[in-house]
Write a protein that binds this DNA or RNA. Sequence first.
DNA 1: TTGTACGCGTTATCAA
DNA 2: TTGATAACGCGTACAA
Lengths: 331, 331
Amino acid sequence: MTISIYDIAKEANVAPSTVSRALQNHPRIGTETKARIQALAKTMGYVPSAVAKSLTTNKTWTIGMVVTAVADPVVADILDGVEAVAQDAGYSVFLSNSRDDAEREAALIETFQRRRVDAIIVHASRRNKLYNSKLTQHQVPIILIEHQEPGNYQHTVSTDSKRGGQLATEHLIGLGHRRIGFVGALERPRSNEERLNGYKAALEQANIPFIPEIVSLLESDDDFERGQLGLAEILAGEPTAVFCYNDRTAIGLMKGCEQRGIAIPDQLSIVGFDDIGNASYLRPALTTMRQPWIQMGEIAMQMTLDLLDGQTPENRILPVELIVRQTTTKR
Amino acid sequence: MTISIYDIAKEANVAPSTVSRALQNHPRIGTETKARIQALAKTMGYVPSAVAKSLTTNKTWTIGMVVTAVADPVVADILDGVEAVAQDAGYSVFLSNSRDDAEREAALIETFQRRRVDAIIVHASRRNKLYNSKLTQHQVPIILIEHQEPGNYQHTVSTDSKRGGQLATEHLIGLGHRRIGFVGALERPRSNEERLNGYKAALEQANIPFIPEIVSLLESDDDFERGQLGLAEILAGEPTAVFCYNDRTAIGLMKGCEQRGIAIPDQLSIVGFDDIGNASYLRPALTTMRQPWIQMGEIAMQMTLDLLDGQTPENRILPVELIVRQTTTKR
DNA sequence: TTGTACGCGTTATCAA
DNA sequence: TTGATAACGCGTACAA
């Protein structure tokens, strides 16, 4: 049997409301009674019920987070950032996996609403439109991290994918490459398109023609596999370098090269995107665009706190950074 | 303003209890009224409050999960398994990070108790003792995954670390190695000791002396760093092979070898432990002991469900499997 | 089949 | 400073 403030009240010969006040350091309570009751609560092993508290205060100190996959190192980092800031602010976070399924995503959001979370954070959402209406209908703020449905939404944090694509491509161009391939990810429509646009912009600026044969765009739920398939697709076009949608795609592509006896970087230079933890431990170590994942999670959660505080935080677009390692070389 | 069953009741000219029954498909309700009320609830945008429901039913359909770090790929996999099974069973999971800090871990547990979670799952706990008392004091079942404080506890799932250590070492012995080092992790007391014991057992069985100079045992919150430091420690003892506590340690150690110009596997064979996702993409690809991480999460959550169902599940020890790749070769 | 009334554990508003 | 009492939203005996 779990004990309540009523039990303590009975034991202390006071009213339940007095116990309540004593336990929340209410100003209007006697110093001595407060001490007495707090001590009593402790010895009786009292554990306050957040459920009951939430019912009256209409606040759960709870955040709902939906991700497309938790085993993705990028997601794990974001989660780390979100949880750390949330924890420090006294919030607990619900984690759930949409498995990149739009219907499931919607169901999870509804579950969170039933649970009366104070806010919801969604990573790589492809259902943004849904949220514009949900947002107004109920009062639960929804914050999007790297949302993937193109368009404008109220609360978002993402990285500068276009600039990232451009920097990556410029790096390759600077090394003398002119046949630069791109292996993209259709299931990430917005960031994929932005990276592709950056790639195109860099080519155009350098007066290098866009060659469709060395651009692969496919949808896959396995990044590594995408890399292998993408390589097979573009090889006939004889690229001397490839810019990959993300690191895991690049890693898959590297494996494909190994199987085919293609030397990296001598025969093919490769640039990834993300700078996941292991990128620097690969051999050759992967040249890539670093995205500040943990920070992204922290910022998203901080935006959430600001929102809950009644402020109106600006949407954020974080910078990316080129990290040159061993997979790129002069042509 | 969020609407409740009272609002619906007023609108439908029925009692709130009727609405309640209609919404939960209660048997004792008129088919027609049920349909009418359900439709009305939908048009009114009714979202039931899990908070209120929990208060009366004394059940939150909530699981608290505490991990030592979410960016660790092993943790992410476990989490994935736990969440998937939980979600299918209708539970939501709270994720929180203890940062491998015992005090923080205790605080998180208390938070979960305040939130009245139905069960708690802890990964790599070093405070098991705490839980034996907590367990009896309150009724919240606590399930331990790879607990690290030696001893026996009520509900645990782990892998057969000793056998893993033995298999790894036997593999190296079978390749002709006799000076086999070990780089262990003191902050994981139980599994580290078990792997070490397996290592010793294999040596003993092959009549190979235990050489303290090539055994490194240090505490580090950075696996990669541990690998580098461990390598430095044991090098003077001239090992021809090393068994590492885990893959990330092995990766750090491999990097150290590279910096020193030590060829892998020709000058030094390496075996890891875990088989994290990237192990097979490293060059050379890492020979390691595979642990079924996702499955481990699934099993832990399934045990939890059984427990909540009133059953008394057995503790589980999962098998490990040797995966031979490129970092080990004949001496 | 439907309605009434109470309980769940806490906070908050009034009085005392 | 403390005590009654009414909320909060829902489930559920019990009565109608």
